[in-house]
Amino acid sequence: MYVDNNWITVSGDEKEGFIEQVDPIDGKHKATMETTDVAWRSLPFYENIAMIRVKDSSWDPAHLTVYYLVREGQLYRLNGTSPPIHEVNEVAPIKLNEENILDYLRFFCFFVRGEEGPFLIVEDMDNPHLPKDKLDDASLKVIEGVIRPATYEGKNDEGFYMCDGIVYYSNALFIANFAIQPGGMIEMLDDDPVAADLPAKVDAPVS
């Protein structure tokens, strides 16, 4: 998630203090000054919250990426469930608007997992989490033919933000409609399959 150049590397005493706070991550992943990469970034829907990304090629699986939200030194582990996000949304508090609502949709759907993985919002073929190396040419052509940018459609009578997008979940693509409350709760209203039985699932472990 957020595979771009807006991450700021954490080093020196700050990195050492962070590693002392989290090691071992989830009680099993060793973090060290030598092998662990730590970076942080801001998010457009929080004012006083940073997101921290932790990676280490010695972990199993090697492509595991661990994320935290942090507020005034308090860490909230993004472990694939919704409670940490809702807790941060309440204490931050979250500030959604028409400009950042799609960013929040992408964030929430990536970090709140089902049994088959993330609900990845796919908008173009450059998405780094698309398992392109495991998809055959026919599948890639199908995906390219149905994906499109997520859209914000306005507010409903209750003041909820109405959005839609293409979701890659398990081995299928769906067009999904979402209602997002100002406090950050998201409900998927409809999901209609547009491609099924793809040969690969999204493989982007966060825990």
Rank of each mutant, 00 (worst) to 15 (best):
T9K: 15
T9Q: 13
T9I: 13
D13G: 01
D13E: 15
D13A: 15
E16L: 09
F18N: 04
F18M: 07
E20F: 04
Q21V: 00
V22C: 06
V22N: 02
I25L: 07
K30I: 15
K30Q: 14
A31C: 15
T32H: 11
T32P: 07
E34D: 15
T35K: 10
T36W: 09
V38T: 10
A39G: 00
W40P: 00
R41D: 05
S42V: 03
L43C: 08
F45K: 06
Y46N: 12
Y46S: 07
E47Y: 13
N48I: 06
I49S: 13
K55F: 05
D56Y: 04
D56R: 07
D56M: 07
S57R: 05
W59K: 08
D60F: 09
P61R: 03
P61N: 04
P61Q: 03
P61G: 03
A62N: 06
A62S: 13
H63F: 07
H63A: 02
T65R: 15
L69S: 07
V70P: 00
E72H: 10
E72Y: 12
E72P: 02
G73R: 13
G73V: 14
L75Y: 14
L78G: 01
T81N: 09
I85P: 03
I85D: 01
H86N: 06
V88N: 11
V88A: 11
V88C: 11
V88K: 13
N89P: 11
V91I: 15
V91N: 12
A92R: 14
A92Y: 14
P93T: 11
L96T: 08
L96P: 08
N97E: 02
N97H: 07
E99R: 12
I101N: 03
D103F: 10
Y104E: 03
L105A: 03
L105V: 02
F107T: 01
F107S: 02
F108W: 15
F111P: 01
F111R: 11
V112P: 02
G114K: 05
E115C: 05
E115W: 11
G117C: 04
P118I: 06
P118S: 13
F119L: 11
E123I: 09
D124C: 12
M125S: 07
N127R: 02
H129K: 10
P131G: 03
K132Y: 05
